[in-house]
Simulated scan of single mutants.
Amino acid sequence: MLKTKCLHPGILNVLSKCGHGDKILIADGNYPVDSNTNKNVEKVYLNLTHGIPLVTDVLKVLNKTIAIEKLEVMIPGDDTKPSIFDDFKNIVSSVDCLEELGRFEFYEACKEENIKLAIATGEQRIYANVLLTVGVA
């Protein structure tokens, strides 16, 4: 029996293959996972219904499963900071700051070959997407 926080076999399979510098996308319910990720990324659709699960739920589990070196977020074009960004920093206290990317810059980052996993959630808050960089255990 596993003692890790993550029990999803598909996610665990991909995480076991990730190395330092590989990335994982946790996407909100509005993110176009099919069209804005690379063709080789493993896609996991956890979006059961509106609001289940939340991006922060998935982030909490992954934070207890892998080392996270960096967080990248998609920022609105109007210089506002979505409140979920504070949640991200509180959950992953090992990172000092969030790297902010514009919408289209974030989309391009999610198409890179080092994105190994994309997890779709039921998150309804906008700009609640986060790219995790796998750190050294």
Rank of each mutant, 00 (worst) to 15 (best):
M1V: 10
K3R: 06
K3V: 06
T4V: 07
T4Q: 07
K5T: 11
L7V: 11
H8S: 04
P9T: 01
G10D: 14
G10R: 08
G10W: 01
N13Y: 06
N13C: 05
V14W: 03
V14C: 02
L15W: 00
L15M: 02
S16K: 07
C18E: 00
D22M: 01
K23V: 02
I24T: 00
L25D: 01
L25K: 05
A27D: 06
A27R: 01
G29Q: 08
N30W: 11
Y31N: 01
D34P: 05
S35A: 15
S35P: 05
T37G: 08
K39L: 14
K39W: 07
K39Q: 13
K39S: 12
E42Y: 10
E42K: 06
L46I: 04
L48P: 09
H50E: 10
G51F: 02
G51H: 03
P53W: 15
L54H: 14
T56W: 07
T56M: 10
L62H: 01
A67K: 10
I68Q: 04
E69Y: 04
K70R: 08
E72G: 07
E72Y: 14
V73G: 00
M74P: 05
M74D: 08
M74C: 12
I75P: 00
P76S: 09
D78R: 02
D79Y: 01
T80A: 02
P82D: 06
S83N: 09
D86L: 05
D87V: 00
F88G: 07
F88C: 06
K89C: 13
N90M: 10
N90H: 03
N90Y: 00
V92T: 10
S93Y: 13
V95E: 03
V95G: 01
C97T: 15
E99A: 11
E100Y: 06
L101W: 13
L101N: 10
G102K: 12
F104K: 12
E108N: 07
E112G: 14
E112P: 01
E112F: 02
E112V: 06
L117P: 06
A118N: 07
A120F: 04
A120R: 09
T121H: 04
G122Q: 05
E123V: 08
E123N: 07
Q124G: 11
Q124H: 10
Q124N: 13
R125M: 07
Y127S: 03
Y127W: 09
Y127E: 09
A128F: 08
A128H: 01
N129K: 00
L131W: 07
L132F: 01
L132K: 00
L132Q: 00
A137L: 12
A137M: 13
A137D: 12
